[in-house]
Each structure stands twice: as structure tokens, then as C-alpha cells.
């Protein structure tokens, strides 16, 4: 990490820490959800953006994470903060196991398999035999945690900081994972899996690991989301959630860590904006926004920003490029 990005990151964290004190409780809740989505999108980006495996069913892992948290709190009385790592661990295992058969499938066929997972999840959650734990169609209501240690924060603000802390940890973890050997292996498999294999990258292991880690991120996000919304029900995890997550990473920017944040802002706030523009057909407006973003920034917001900064650099130091070329 260069000094400049470190300063930018600290500045971002500082701004993020001020947010809940200047906006209303409802807005704070919305920003909590932005952080939740950002974690989920980073997870999906590890799989789809970095490793090139398309998933149309990540909503299922989000649902598993959310239900893990809800069932643990509701049935076993586990404190909310302990459910987050538990949800992550469960999703890591489930994702890894799902990744094994998915190794056989590529491109569209993988998209269909994951799509099937996403479609089946609400039906499985409604299934009678599981009703004792999942609460069936009604779902589970969760109590909102209060701030500990007598901190002068209301529960919305506390939840925001809790989520911010988890998000920071997950992003640092992701950044560390992707910049080194593992990240290079994932990208190598995406770009040319035969060449990667020839260079000693264990394709099957890395691909199923990518599935597991990606599911873990999404599961952690699901648990946090459930705690923030205080409610889980099968129909809030429809296939539409999975599609929205995919839209989020494409709009934010594939294979970029910061893209997860832009994508999360998009999927949290643009539907509201669309609703304000037209009450009659809000989704039509949302669709138009999606098309506009793809037209104007085909590589996502992160890609567009990268291009802008490159252009700025070239503008400031026109000679820099030539210097680099000297061996």
C-alpha cells in the first residue's frame, strides 16, 4: 500500500465514522446496509471478478449467513457478535462443497447451476421439515443489540460502527489475500486456466477455495444484514437478491476491491432514487440507470476512476511514460 492510498483510506474511515452523527437514524441504517452489501460484493467479486466463475446464486449464501445468525440468536441464545464468525464458517464450508461439483461447469452452465441454487433457497427455507428452526414463511424476528460498555450511542449508531469494524477487517483480509500469491493464482486461472495449470497452480483447489472464501464473505454479510434488519424471512432472499449482487459488482467494477463499495452504494440508493423519480414504474427507471452506467462505464465505476486517474497522471507528467520504458 502506498502512502497516498493509506492516507486516502484513513480519510475514508474518518468520514465514515462521522456519518452516523450527522445523518438521521434511518440514514444510518441505510449506510449500515451499504457496508453489508459491500462485504457481500467483495465476496462475489473474489469469485466472479478475480476468478472468472459467474455466480447467479450468491443470494443463497447471503440467506444461509442470515439464517445462521438468526437461528443461533433465537434458538441457542448466542450473542449477536458471535453469530457473525459462525455464519462465515458455515458458509465457507457450504461454499467449498458447492464449489467442488461446480468445477465441472463453465460459463453459462455454471451460471445455471448457481442460478438453481439461488432459486431453490427460498423454497428450502420454507420447507416443512425445517420449520422448527427457520420459522417457515413467517421467518424469525431478532432483537436489536444495544451499545455495550455504556457507550453514548443509540442502537442504530452502534450497529453501524460494529458493521464498519467488521467491514474494515474483511476488506483488509481481502486485500491481503488478493495482492499476493493467491490473488495472482486466481487471476491466472481466470485468464488462462491451462497455462495456470502448467505453471503449477492447482486449478481445482484454488477454484473451490475461491468459492468457499466468496461464500464466507457473503455469509458474514448475510449475518450482519439479518442483525441490522432484525428480521429474516425466505422471501427476502429471492433470486432477485442474487441478481442485484451481480449487478452491484458489474456496476462497481469487476476485479477491483474498491468497486465493491461503489456497487453497494448503487444497489442501496439508486432504487430509492428511482422510486422518487417515478412512483408508477420505479424499476423502469432503475433499469435505465443500469443501462446508462454500463454505456458510460463499461468497466464499472472503479474502472472509470482508474482511467481518469491514469489520464490525470499522464497529463501531469507527460515524460513519465518514456522514463519507464528505459530498461
Amino acid at each position: 500500500m502506498t502512502k497516498k492510498t493509506l492516507i486516502a483510506l484513513l480519510l475514508l474511515v474518518a468520514v465514515a465514522s462521522i456519518v452516523p452523527f450527522v445523518v438521521s437514524n434511518y440514514r444510518t441504517f441505510q449506510f449500515t446496509l451499504v457496508l453489508v452489501y459491500a462485504i457481500a460484493l467483495l465476496g462475489l467479486n473474489i469469485l466472479t471478478g478475480y476468478n472468472g466463475q459467474v455466480s447467479l446464486g450468491h443470494g443463497a449464501f447471503y440467506a444461509i449467513g442470515a439464517y445462521c445468525a438468526a437461528v443461533l440468536m433465537d434458538k441457542a441464545g448466542v450473542p449477536y457478535w458471535a453469530t457473525v464468525p459462525a455464519a462465515g464458517a458455515v458458509c465457507l464450508v457450504v461454499g467449498f462443497l458447492f464449489g467442488l461439483p461446480a468445477l465441472r461447469l463453465e460459463g453459462l452452465y455454471l451460471a445455471l447451476a448457481t442460478f438453481a441454487l439461488g432459486v431453490s433457497m427460498p423454497q428450502l427455507l420454507k420447507y416443512k421439515a425445517l420449520e422448527e428452526w427457520t420459522g417457515g414463511v413467517q421467518g424469525i424476528v431478532i432483537a436489536k443489540p444495544d451499545a455495550p460498555w455504556g457507550l453514548p450511542l443509540n442502537s442504530d449508531q452502534w450497529l453501524y460502527f460494529f458493521t464498519l469494524g467488521v467491514a474494515l477487517a474483511m476488506f483488509l483480509l481481502g486485500w491481503n489475500l488478493l495482492r499476493g500469491r493467491v490473488g495472482r493464482a486466481l487471476v491466472a486461472i481466470r485468464d488462462h486456466h491451462i497455462a495456470a495449470e502448467a505453471m503449477g497452480v492447482h486449478n481445482a483447489l484454488y477454484k473451490s477455495l475461491a468459492f468457499g472464501v466468496s461464500a464466507m464473505y457473503t455469509g458474514v454479510a448475510g449475518a450482519l444484514g439479518a442483525i441490522a434488519v432484525q428480521f429474516v424471512a425466505p422471501d427476502s432472499f429471492s433470486i432477485f437478491l442474487s441478481i442485484l449482487l451481480l449487478v452491484g459488482i458489474v456496476i462497481g467494477g469487476l476485479a477491483s476491491i474498491s468497486g465493491a463499495l461503489y456497487g453497494a452504494l448503487f444497489i442501496q440508493f439508486v432504487p430509492n432514487l428511482a422510486d422518487e423519480i417515478s412512483k408508477a414504474a420505479p424499476w423502469a427507471i432503475f433499469g435505465i440507470f443500469m443501462i446508462l452506467f454500463v454505456y458510460l462505464m463499461p468497466t464499472g465505476v472503479a474502472g472509470a476512476l482508474r482511467m481518469l486517474s491514469e489520464r490525470q497522471k499522464r497529463h501531469n507528467f507527460p515524460a513519465a511514460k518514456n522514463e519507464e520504458e528505459v530498461p
Binding site: 466472479t48 459467474v54 441478481i243 451481480l246 449487478v247 459488482i249 458489474v250 456496476i251 469487476l254 432503475f286 433499469g287 435505465i288 443500469m290 443501462i291 454500463v294 463499461p298 468497466t299
Partner: peptide
């Protein structure tokens, strides 16, 4: 994937 997003839109 950008084209997929256009289809979803």
C-alpha cells in the same frame, strides 16, 4: 457481464 447487466436492465 456488462452485457448481462443490460439484459437484466
Amino acid at each position: 457481464l456488462a452485457v448481462v447487466v443490460v439484459f437484466i436492465a
